[in-house]
Design a binder for these strands. Structure first.
Lengths: 218, 218
DNA sequence: GTGAGATTAGAACAAATGTTCTAACACATT
DNA sequence: AATGTGTTAGAACATTTGTTCTAATCTCAC
């Protein structure tokens, strides 16, 4: 709380932030009146006008229930973000045995934000099982978020569909002419090569998430 | 798109989801009418009623502009999340040279979600610099999110304030009686021990984030 | 072709919600 | 004590927003 904010102002800003953080409707003046335990909407109106004038909040003119936060009660800018729902499709590196990602209907989504994945197109998540990615510093239990794509560059960590094995896997990708080398990220396992027509790139790892408190999306 | 949804229904649901994901005000019927290129709010009203009846959307009775999404146009449940703003306080393991986290005013926040950090109390983030945590599979450039706390258990990865060195650091914590052992997570570096009164636990690592696409919160 | 039901359209209406107005009260200054 | 300013309170008012009503048009089955 900065010294220039009164208690009701602080409470108003906190109430608004809670609503916004919760993806809930912006409060009306009446709802704020109740939350701040005031006895007249007029006081809310005045608080709102003052805070708007000082750049803490904004509203869309001529539109009801559109209060938004510009600056929190601590005085710091509040930046709106975009929530990104990423489908959790299964396990990596293996066990996710689909040859195509289209039309797959996951039951589970992981809510991320634009800060983590600025580009939200074509994302999906896999839970890492085992230690085959440990040399990439990706652990058992981690979540990896991938972007669907069909091309890869050398050194990219990708999910590929292996046609002959009828299986998908996650490995580091290297191309030598018409040969694709797939390196497991574990020294104990061997790189293997495949003719390019036997390897279909499905997605590229773009984000790694590890909780040390509890399983993510469990 | 599921086969039981009409084109206007799909567009309505998508419009609503975009608003919710963006932490923007729920649309009015008139705004939906414009977005769906209809000529009468009555059609919106009917779409809304139908979708509400089928469990795709909900609204707060007797409250304007409160449409919310229960199920997306793909038919999958849409779960609201909570956005969690985590202050980015500096670098880890070292360089963040404060003996206390209170009153620190960061310029930068990272927006996460409740899915990643179910408990949002006392969180802050540090950017990892260097390879001193590499044995913990935490890389240079990763972000670590910590929870402020003053106690730690053996094996916890914690930020501590070292009184004699007038410095903070992030290491793995082990206690032997009145001696605290702090293990860097890099085989090349040595564990060091400190009398307990010289070590103040400031926070514990709860989440590790690594983007392979671009720097997070840059 | 005819009739019934659904869809579309727009106006009228009702209710939610923000704004303005009036008045009382509290506090500081002269 | 009187005056001026700010705060509080609630009613009246204005505007936004959802609901209902009416009518025309379209679609489909018989």
């Amino acid at each position: 709380m900065t010294p220039s904010l009164s208690v009701p102002e602080t409470k108003l800003l906190d109430t608004l932030q809670r609503r916004l953080d919760a993806q809930a409707p912006s409060p009306t003046f009446e709802e704020l009146r109740v939350a701040l335990r005031l006895t007249s909407k007029n006081q809310v109106s005045q608080l709102v006008a003052g805070l708007e004038q000082r750049g803490y909040i904004a509203r869309a003119a001529g539109r009801k229930r559109t209060l938004t936060l510009l600056r929190g009660s601590d005085g710091r800018p509040y930046h709106l973000t975009r929530v990104v729902h990423v489908p959790l499709l299964g396990l990596a590196p293996a066990s996710f045995g689909q040859d195509t990602l289209d039309g797959f209907a996951p039951d589970e989504y992981l809510a991320l934000t634009q800060d983590l994945v600025p580009d939200e197109t074509g994302l999906y998540a896999l839970r890492v099982s085992g230690d085959s990615l440990s040399d990439a510093h990706i652990n058992d239990g981690d979540l990896v978020v991938l972007r669907q794509q069909q091309e890869a560059s050398d050194g990219d960590l990708v999910q590929v569909w292996l046609r002959r094995e009828d299986a998908a896997t996650v490995k580091r990708y290297f191309r030598q002419g018409k040969i694709i080398w797939l390196h497991p990220e574990n020294r104990a396992l061997k790189p293997r090569c495949y003719p390019e027509e036997d390897v279909r790139v499905q997605g590229k790892v773009v984000l790694v998430l590890r909780s040390l408190e509890r399983a993510l999306a469990a």
